[in-house]
Deep mutational scan, measured.
Amino acid sequence: QVALSRTQVCGILREELFQGDAFHQSDTHIFIIMGASGDLAKKKIYPTIWWLFRDGLLPENTFIVGYARSRLTVADIRKQSEPFFKATPEEKLKLEDFFARNSYVAGQYDDAASYQRLNSHMNALHLGSQANRLFYLALPPTVYEAVTKNIHESCMSQIGWNRIIVEKPFGRDLQSSDRLSNHISSLFREDQIYRIDHYLGKEMVQNLMVLRFANRIFGPIWNRDNIACVILTFKEPFGTEGRGGYFDEFGIIRDVMQNHLLQMLCLVAMEKPASTNSDDVRDEKVKVLKCISEVQANNVVLGQYVGNPDGEGEATKGYLDDPTVPRGSTTATFAAVVLYVENERWDGVPFILRCGKALNERKAEVRLQFHDVAGDIFHQQCKRNELVIRVQPNEAVYTKMMTKKPGMFFNPEESELDLTYGNRYKNVKLPDAYERLILDVFCGSQMHFVRSDELREAWRIFTPLLHQIELEKPKPIPYIYGSRGPTEADELMKRVGFQYEGTYKWVNPHKL
């Protein structure tokens, strides 16, 4: 086992960053958080920038500027975001240094004079007029057009580079997404736009490419001749908990499936790229999406959770019991969808996408189930092999396979070949997804960000279904809070070829 401390991990990262040409360590950078008073800024962006600063992973002359409508001070920003920093008493001095680099400007999102004030403020910072500028839009999409237009007109660096990070949702359907994309691309070049999907920053999602293309053993079996089906799962054990009003506007397909799960599907299904260059990788992902037809209604199961009468606390409440959810809402909190990649490698292999709230566990994984062994000599005792990439929690890679049961006879039983990170790298604290992705933006690497043509294809696949749901308002199937979801989803999976045995229990190697 390799035991690495946080300091050692960050030392390795620093070495990698400083050796590259793309990370300008000594240049002045300004990180501007648009929507600095909001939840995302408070819980994710400010803490992430602090962790990067604490670990010495930001360029040395980096300033952080918050911008929002609320009249706040840096002290206010500190008060609301610091509880999420997880700072230790030993880091007190470092924390003071961090907040000394912070400033805040209040202004409207659609007022040109406010942006001119913001620009004057940035120019007044040390070497601010020639600094590289990175704008993070932690804002609702309704203000994107006004904000990007004003940034472009008043706040661009004339000497350094300018980059803009856009948070999902990128529209509600193909038409609104196209409108937003066309607007942003009329102001910024594609190499300046970073559409963030934080799932692409997760260690195991990034590991998929290495697993596939750096190991000879997987190449020959990664196709329709050997793989019976692919299941991509995202499960949350909690409901909307008072935030249903926002969720109800989008629903589970827009929230998770059309982005996170579809991105994971691309990494499983794509061909080997010409290189690890950002556009070479994204070219292959677009090719996969172009091979997927629009979702067919007979390959869809929609569910909505109801309270568990035997549960406790939140578990007793259904989705419609959330006071922020519109009365009688038919918005799905669970969806199972089957897609097919219609190309030579994957023809006929079902890709089953499942996601839901208020389920029995927290889990995100990719599961490849292989065909049955031909010419069975073990009297149907063999179960199908599976390769599982567990994204969260407890990152893991393992192969479910058959071995001989101890004893006199040739009785096979299920076991696993474990390729888990935790076994080799004991207690290594890896940077989280937002840390990686923000560092990628500083480096100018777009590999783990969504390109406009990729986004367009993703919406093309799901828009007809979303429009049909909005028009017909089908009643989702009720499922109990804390269950596996509607049984109809299991029946759909069985119908397209997935075999669920229920006889195997994964042993978490992190707890051995």
Results as ranks from 00 to 15, higher is better:
residue 383 K to P: 14
residue 299 N to F: 09
residue 398 Y to D: 03
residue 289 L to M: 08
residue 274 A to F: 11
residue 335 A to G: 14
residue 456 R to W: 08
residue 469 I to N: 10
residue 290 K to V: 03
residue 327 R to L: 14
residue 274 A to E: 13
residue 493 M to G: 15
residue 469 I to F: 14
residue 343 N to K: 05
residue 257 M to S: 10
residue 305 Y to C: 05
residue 345 R to D: 09
residue 347 D to K: 15
residue 499 Q to E: 15
residue 294 E to H: 09
residue 332 A to T: 05
residue 351 F to A: 02
residue 449 F to G: 05
residue 499 Q to W: 13
residue 286 V to K: 12
residue 430 L to S: 12
residue 489 A to N: 06
residue 320 L to K: 14
residue 340 Y to P: 00
residue 285 K to Y: 01
residue 400 K to P: 02
residue 450 V to Q: 07
residue 327 R to K: 10
residue 504 Y to Q: 06
residue 413 E to K: 12
residue 405 K to W: 10
residue 460 R to I: 03
residue 324 T to L: 12
residue 426 K to G: 15
residue 416 E to K: 02
residue 305 Y to E: 00
residue 360 N to G: 11
residue 335 A to T: 08
residue 489 A to E: 06
residue 328 G to M: 13
residue 268 V to W: 04
residue 449 F to Q: 03
residue 307 G to W: 01
residue 345 R to S: 13
residue 264 M to R: 04
residue 337 V to Q: 11
residue 443 C to M: 11
residue 400 K to R: 11
residue 393 P to G: 12
residue 386 E to H: 02
residue 472 E to N: 12
residue 254 R to I: 03
residue 319 Y to F: 05
residue 264 M to D: 02
residue 485 G to A: 07
residue 385 N to M: 01
residue 367 R to E: 04
residue 284 E to L: 08
residue 279 D to N: 10
residue 265 L to F: 12
residue 280 D to S: 12
residue 475 K to W: 11
residue 430 L to M: 15
residue 290 K to N: 13
residue 296 Q to L: 15
residue 317 K to S: 14
residue 371 H to M: 09
residue 313 G to Y: 11
residue 363 K to Q: 03
residue 320 L to D: 05
residue 464 P to N: 13
residue 282 R to E: 04
residue 423 N to W: 10
residue 300 V to L: 14
residue 269 A to N: 02
residue 328 G to F: 13
residue 295 V to Y: 09
residue 254 R to D: 06
residue 363 K to V: 05
residue 389 I to G: 03
residue 419 L to G: 06
residue 371 H to C: 12
residue 346 W to S: 04
residue 374 A to W: 08
residue 273 P to W: 00
residue 337 V to R: 00
residue 457 E to L: 09
residue 341 V to R: 05
residue 368 L to M: 12
residue 476 P to G: 05
residue 260 H to L: 01
residue 435 E to T: 11
residue 425 Y to M: 06
residue 408 M to H: 13
residue 421 Y to E: 00
residue 421 Y to P: 01
residue 457 E to H: 12
residue 340 Y to M: 14
residue 395 E to F: 00
residue 308 N to W: 08
residue 475 K to R: 15
residue 276 T to Q: 12
residue 477 I to L: 15
residue 455 L to C: 07
residue 300 V to W: 12
residue 444 G to R: 09
residue 297 A to M: 14
residue 291 C to R: 14
residue 326 P to I: 07
residue 345 R to E: 11
residue 493 M to E: 13
residue 502 G to A: 12
residue 417 L to E: 08
residue 414 E to G: 10
residue 447 M to H: 02
residue 430 L to K: 12
residue 505 K to V: 15
residue 305 Y to T: 00
residue 477 I to H: 14
residue 289 L to A: 08
residue 277 N to G: 14
residue 417 L to R: 03
residue 495 R to I: 12
residue 463 T to R: 00
residue 493 M to N: 10
residue 493 M to D: 06
residue 456 R to H: 08
residue 404 K to I: 06
residue 493 M to V: 15
residue 500 Y to L: 06
residue 350 P to Y: 00
residue 320 L to N: 08
residue 301 V to D: 00
residue 416 E to Q: 05
residue 336 A to N: 12
residue 296 Q to G: 14
residue 296 Q to D: 14
residue 463 T to H: 02
residue 482 G to E: 06
residue 382 C to F: 10
residue 489 A to D: 03
residue 401 M to N: 02
residue 330 T to Y: 11
residue 498 F to C: 13
residue 356 G to N: 00
residue 262 L to C: 09
residue 391 V to L: 06
residue 355 C to M: 05
residue 392 Q to A: 09
residue 414 E to V: 13
residue 489 A to S: 14
residue 398 Y to K: 01
residue 409 F to R: 15
residue 281 V to C: 10
residue 500 Y to M: 08
residue 376 D to V: 05
residue 309 P to Q: 13
residue 342 E to W: 10
residue 437 L to K: 01
residue 448 H to N: 14
residue 486 P to H: 04
residue 348 G to V: 01
residue 425 Y to S: 06
residue 319 Y to V: 05
residue 386 E to I: 00
residue 445 S to K: 13
residue 317 K to E: 13
residue 438 I to K: 00
residue 323 P to R: 15
residue 337 V to F: 08
residue 383 K to W: 11
residue 482 G to T: 04
residue 296 Q to A: 14
residue 399 T to I: 11
residue 480 I to M: 15
residue 272 K to H: 07
residue 283 D to K: 04
residue 367 R to V: 04
residue 372 D to F: 01
residue 383 K to C: 15
residue 397 V to Q: 00
residue 339 L to P: 06
residue 323 P to E: 15
residue 504 Y to A: 04
residue 314 E to W: 11
residue 321 D to P: 05
residue 325 V to R: 02
residue 394 N to D: 15
residue 423 N to K: 12
residue 483 S to F: 08
residue 493 M to S: 15
residue 381 Q to V: 12
residue 373 V to F: 05
residue 385 N to V: 01
residue 312 E to S: 13
residue 364 A to R: 02
residue 269 A to R: 05
residue 493 M to C: 15
residue 501 E to V: 09
residue 495 R to S: 13
residue 364 A to G: 13
residue 256 V to K: 03
residue 294 E to R: 11
residue 279 D to I: 13
residue 368 L to A: 07
residue 358 A to W: 02
residue 419 L to F: 07
residue 265 L to R: 02
residue 409 F to K: 14
residue 365 E to H: 02
residue 333 T to Y: 04
residue 455 L to P: 07
residue 432 D to T: 09
residue 276 T to I: 08
residue 328 G to S: 14
residue 403 T to M: 12
residue 270 M to K: 01
residue 491 E to D: 13
residue 289 L to D: 02
residue 498 F to T: 08
residue 333 T to I: 03
residue 466 L to E: 05
residue 448 H to D: 08
residue 415 S to K: 00
residue 335 A to Y: 03
residue 479 Y to C: 02
residue 360 N to V: 00
residue 445 S to C: 13
residue 274 A to C: 11
residue 464 P to K: 10
residue 411 N to W: 06
residue 379 H to K: 14
residue 402 M to Q: 14
residue 473 K to H: 14
residue 347 D to W: 09
residue 290 K to R: 14
residue 403 T to C: 14
residue 305 Y to A: 05
residue 470 E to H: 13
residue 466 L to P: 02
residue 268 V to Y: 05
residue 339 L to R: 00
residue 407 G to P: 03
residue 397 V to R: 04
residue 333 T to A: 00
residue 330 T to R: 14
residue 258 Q to A: 08
residue 322 D to T: 05
residue 459 W to L: 04
residue 450 V to K: 04
residue 300 V to Y: 13
residue 268 V to E: 02
residue 439 L to I: 09
residue 500 Y to I: 06
residue 385 N to R: 03
residue 479 Y to W: 03
residue 497 G to H: 12
residue 503 T to Q: 15
residue 333 T to H: 01
residue 474 P to M: 14
residue 317 K to G: 14
residue 404 K to H: 01
residue 447 M to Q: 04
residue 429 K to H: 14
residue 456 R to Q: 12
residue 487 T to N: 11
residue 320 L to E: 07
residue 318 G to S: 11
residue 395 E to N: 08
residue 378 F to N: 05
residue 266 C to W: 00
residue 391 V to G: 04
residue 442 F to S: 02
residue 401 M to I: 09
residue 362 R to I: 07
residue 435 E to N: 11
